[in-house]
Design a protein around this nucleic acid. Sequence first.
DNA 1: CTAGCGATATTCT
DNA 2: GAATATCGCTAGG
Length: 205
Amino acid sequence: MNAKKLQKQYFQNPNVIFLAKDLLGKVIFTNKHGEITAGIITETEAYFGIEDRASHAYGGLQTARTAAMYQPGGIAYIYLCYGIHHLLNIVASDYDDPKSILIRSVQPYKGISVIEQRRNKPLSDPSISSGPGSVSKALGIDLSFNKKSLAGDEIWIEDLGMKYNLNEIVSAPRIGVAYAKEHALLSLRFYVKESQYVTHPLKPV
DNA sequence: CTAGCGATATTCT
DNA sequence: GAATATCGCTAGG
């Protein structure tokens, strides 16, 4: 178990499907006001950019909100959803290629008591960090993390040597993107089969 | 267990 | 005005 922080080059891969799968088992750390919390990634979704009807950057749309996705990979894109929930995305690929990966669920790994306080739930309740809004709240992520480097000292990702076998990873359609028409059915969501920390378990495709 | 609904920023019509 | 990459609470079977 040789812990190492993932560097920019890792994220600048344009293959978001590979990244979405490879990120399962990696660990996200945050350091907020000196409180360090971390979670093992158990569920992700890939968003493949300007051709993806479900992406905020569909058609090359650029706004103040989506600007982060047009930066080179390796930074965080934090999006305020429904005006309430912060969603954590990992920007992939290169400059002007707005691909990203949404972190949907994690398994608490470090700073458990801090996470329990932030969520006001016991660790025994899997919903403590299942679902993109919950992940952000558990890890203390808010808009101040937007565009932050993922190789910095406020938010970063480590490879602790944990790896899931392909037969432990399930792919399924993305959630909450029915408006995306033909792209709504693509199996771009990936999660760990036996993990309790996933959003409403759907049937594998 | 499932269904309904409120909260509410950004973006588009 | 309407929709959205959601959550958590409430009511009911």
